[in-house]
Every structure is written in structure tokens, then in C-alpha cells.
């Protein structure tokens, strides 16, 4: 139980540094520290599949983020801040935080799974009959690839759409731009 608090406070401190530092590369490295901390928490929360996925995604995301910030002339943030706008935003966010804290009073204590509170929860069926129905020893696999396979198909669609968007944005050569509308001789 204590380990969760230690890791959680570590993540909060790393996020504060990532938000407040003026060097973009430091912010990106703090994001990396946060990601590995989150992965450790997943491991202690008995979710090894997610911990592995989080590490892989974290490394790839760090590469992408460092690609964006390194070799830029301007990696330091400069310029004056708007004091009034910042104060108003912080006040609104603080009020939302205080109001949102009341929601957690309705949740069961940490350590009590919420699906045990609900009668006939879907998760209970997955745990008790997952092996017989699907034959997968890992119940997360049986949920992803059997019970909710359409969800995974949609995930793959979203992933490919975003990758297509990134490829289109980063593509160098463009055909038929207004500058090259006049007939060009084929080389």
C-alpha cells in the first residue's frame, strides 16, 4: 500500500517539473520518468500486460517527442506571461478539483474492486468462465481478442488513421501545389 503512495507522489512531482520547467528537453525527459513510474504502478496493481505495453509505448513516445524538440534552434521558452489569465485558469481548475473530490466519496475504498459491488458484473463472468469459453489462460487476452474483438478492430482502425494523418503531415513531396500548376516537363 505504501509503495503506491511513494510512486504516485513521484509521478506528481515529475509532472510538476515537466509542467513548470522552461527547457523543453527537460520536460520531455520528465515525461519519460512519469511513464516508467506509471508502468511500475501497473506492475504492482497486478496488471503485467499493461506494464509491458506501457514500457514499449513509452520508449516509442520518447523517441517521437525528442525528435520534435531536439535540433530545434529554440528549445527554451521565453516571453512574458499573462498574469490575469493564468490566475483565472488556476482558480477555475482549483474549483473543479474541489468539486470533483466529492465524487470519490461515493466510490468504494481503494483495494475493493468496484465490480464486486455490482451484482452480475461482466467482469465476474469473464473471470469465472473465461477459460472454459475461450480457452485463453490470460483473461486479458480473452477479453481483447474474444469477448470484445470488435473493440480491438476499431482500435486498429483508429491507430492506422492517426498514422496516415501523421504521414500525410510529414510528407515532403507534394504534387499539384499551386506553384507547380503550370505544365512541367517529365524528367
Amino acid at each position: 500500500m505504501t509503495i503506491f503512495y511513494i510512486l504516485m507522489i513521484f509521478i506528481v512531482i515529475a509532472s510538476l517539473i515537466a509542467v513548470e520547467t522552461t527547457d523543453l528537453l527537460s520536460a520531455v525527459i520528465c515525461i519519460g520518468a512519469m511513464g516508467f513510474g506509471v508502468s511500475l504502478i501497473f506492475l504492482f496493481l497486478r496488471a503485467p500486460d499493461i506494464a509491458i505495453t506501457q514500457i514499449v509505448v513509452e520508449v516509442l513516445g520518447l523517441i517521437i517527442l525528442i525528435r520534435a524538440t531536439i535540433s530545434r534552434d529554440l528549445t527554451f521558452i521565453s516571453g512574458d506571461k499573462e498574469f490575469f489569465g493564468t490566475v483565472v485558469s488556476v482558480a477555475i481548475i482549483f474549483v473543479i478539483f474541489l468539486a470533483g473530490l466529492r465524487v470519490f466519496e461515493t466510490l468504494p475504498e481503494f483495494g475493493t474492486a468496484i465490480f464486486t459491488e455490482a451484482p452480475n458484473a461482466a467482469s465476474q463472468t469473464y473471470i469465472s468462465q473465461g477459460l472454459d469459453k475461450t480457452g485463453a489462460a490470460n483473461l486479458v487476452t480473452s477479453v481483447i481478442l474474444d469477448y470484445r474483438a470488435y473493440d480491438t478492430l476499431g482500435e486498429a482502425t483508429v491507430l492506422f488513421t492517426s498514422i496516415i494523418g501523421a504521414t500525410v503531415l510529414l510528407r515532403r513531396k507534394t504534387k499539384n501545389t499551386p506553384e507547380t500548376l503550370q505544365p512541367v516537363s517529365e524528367s
Binding site: A47, D49, I50, T53, A113, I114, F115, A122, S123, Y126, I127, G130, L139, V140, S142, V143, I144, R148, D151
Partner: peptide, 9 residues
């Protein structure tokens, strides 16, 4: 609970 693990994945 395996269900939130699958969806968070």
C-alpha cells in the same frame, strides 16, 4: 478485474 485492463491496453 480483467475488463479495465483490456480497455486501458
Amino acid at each position: 478485474d480483467p475488463l479495465p485492463q483490456a480497455l486501458v491496453l
